[in-house]
Design a protein around this nucleic acid. Sequence first.
DNA 1: AATTATTTGTGCGTATGTATC
DNA 2: AGATACATACGCACAAATAAT
Lengths: 358, 358
Amino acid sequence: MATPKYQQVMNFLIDFIQDSGLKYGDSMPTESELMKRFDVSRHTIRRALSELVNQGWLYTMQGSGTYVADPNADTNLSGKMIGVITTYFKDYIFPDILSGMDDVLSEEGYSILLGTTKNKTAREKVVINNMLNNQLAGLIVEPTKSVFPNQNIHLYQTFRDRGIPVIFIHATYRGFEASYVVEDDEYAGYIATKHLLDLGHKKILGIFKQDDMQGHGRYQGYLNAFEEAEVAVDHNLIKWFTTEERKTIIQEETLCQWLDARSGATGIICYNDQIAVNLLNCFKGMGIHVPRDYSIVSFDNSKLAANLETKLTTVAHPKARLGEHAAMMMLELMKEPTKYLQDVMKPELIVRDSTRKL
Amino acid sequence: MATPKYQQVMNFLIDFIQDSGLKYGDSMPTESELMKRFDVSRHTIRRALSELVNQGWLYTMQGSGTYVADPNADTNLSGKMIGVITTYFKDYIFPDILSGMDDVLSEEGYSILLGTTKNKTAREKVVINNMLNNQLAGLIVEPTKSVFPNQNIHLYQTFRDRGIPVIFIHATYRGFEASYVVEDDEYAGYIATKHLLDLGHKKILGIFKQDDMQGHGRYQGYLNAFEEAEVAVDHNLIKWFTTEERKTIIQEETLCQWLDARSGATGIICYNDQIAVNLLNCFKGMGIHVPRDYSIVSFDNSKLAANLETKLTTVAHPKARLGEHAAMMMLELMKEPTKYLQDVMKPELIVRDSTRKL
DNA sequence: AATTATTTGTGCGTATGTATC
DNA sequence: AGATACATACGCACAAATAAT
């Protein structure tokens, strides 16, 4: 015997449920009907049905009938989980994002299953596969190396094939239509640069991250501000760095050279607060004063920015609100998994002590 | 009929497995043996066994027999998860602790299932129950309101009954023997206070948290340092606060009164960096200078402490290392679930600019 | 190396209990 | 109250894999 009869019945019934588009609560044929249709004993039918109940396809009510189960319901034993994949979650803005999500999701009885990729696609693959093995109700992802074509996209597609909503935050993967909640990075870059231009700065250095979409977005905003102000952009003023270089990009020796070769610059747009803090520390050692010698605008408005000796002018990242929005979007998508929702959040400039009028 | 026969058989077999301490791979009685023993049909036995297989207790091999399954093995579909319950995880030290755990656990292919209690036992109960519904390989818990008798302890006991290791971090529940990784809070309070005493301070204010063990531990260390230095303790100098009061405890109006009534004090021991930061901000508005007017020592060495205008002298919390230790302990306990392990980590004093010699 | 007994897997038939409609 | 539908339970037969002889 190739495949046992009860398995044949199971396979038929699964196809039947999917093809005929049965929804939660729709009733299945009775056991005796199935006996006749498949010409097998009641025992065989019951075996098939009970396996399907166990797998979460069906549920039974004694005296009433057998019905199609809601795949997202808590009919199955496992608790409700939302997977969250981020690059990191230590320090900086991730705890706030996660906390915002938790506030919303825990209210609805969901727990967060956490995974970090450290911005490495190899780790991302491992993490996603691990998440696939758990029965998630939804998945929220901060993309890893979002500017590059990602070989893990088919894994995200697998979630959607299973009817599990996927939401990207912070950035998206190009060429992959999906729901997302992002900050308007271009606008952020624009208002940061415009602020310096408005203060009279013309020669403005830019330090941007090369391997995520945020860096590129903020850079584009930088260009837009210059274009609007009808000031020519000097591409020689831009410095790009990668995840791997993020800790070594700001060092006193190289920084000295870089600045000397670009004398006359009076403003700096800094990819984020962390880089800005490193910069300030370096400057301290070099006898460079902010904002006297350089006006600095950075991004994210992390805790650091407000507590430094020279408080940073920075573009506030929505953080907790972004997490909340993503979580609320998830709750919506779980009701209508076929939809794609988008949410672009406007950042806000916070002027502090690191910028001055020329 | 009260309970069906197959369920009676199931219950018996579960007890049998647990009581006789059967391990992974040990063989169960054969179906015919069980038929005789329970005097039921083969059908009933098979029904009981198949349910137990489904629940992950047993596995069968055709022609060979029925065997006890390894609860921690990946025989079951779900990915490997470690539950982590904390009071909060936003800002402050929790991201570091979690990050330390993640570094170790992700290496071994585990994901972290997160739950936050916001220091409320009602929420703790919900979170634990949610975790119980997921098949965890282990549970790491930061206790909620650890000084009070906790009505959720029986829930933690349930985990252990299922052979799932439970580790407490940060604090423990009184009267509940368990594995834990904690900071030596008493020692932390001792070295903080001793530092001020060594600098010549005698009248030292203390601000402590009332509803967790850390506060009490640090307070005890405070007392110990005074005792060792043979200086009498003035209990009037101590201020206690609760979770609910943590945001309002430091306010200019009340602070003024409090300090006036305790004139002559020159040092302050602050429950943690957050309180200390609030204190410094208040002092700024009141024209009080640190360390000129007061020497302040706080605890935790959070990111805040090093980036303030007046860099805080603080007792460094192991943070990431604590997370790593807890994770490594978990890996050990999963091999030997019956053991109880303990790890008390010594904190270290970091002297910065908020203290001075009298 | 082949046979045999043991053990689980598949399948049918029947009877009775119990909840629902 | 009765018909219907699922739940529990017993018994039998044979297949397939394994382990021991």
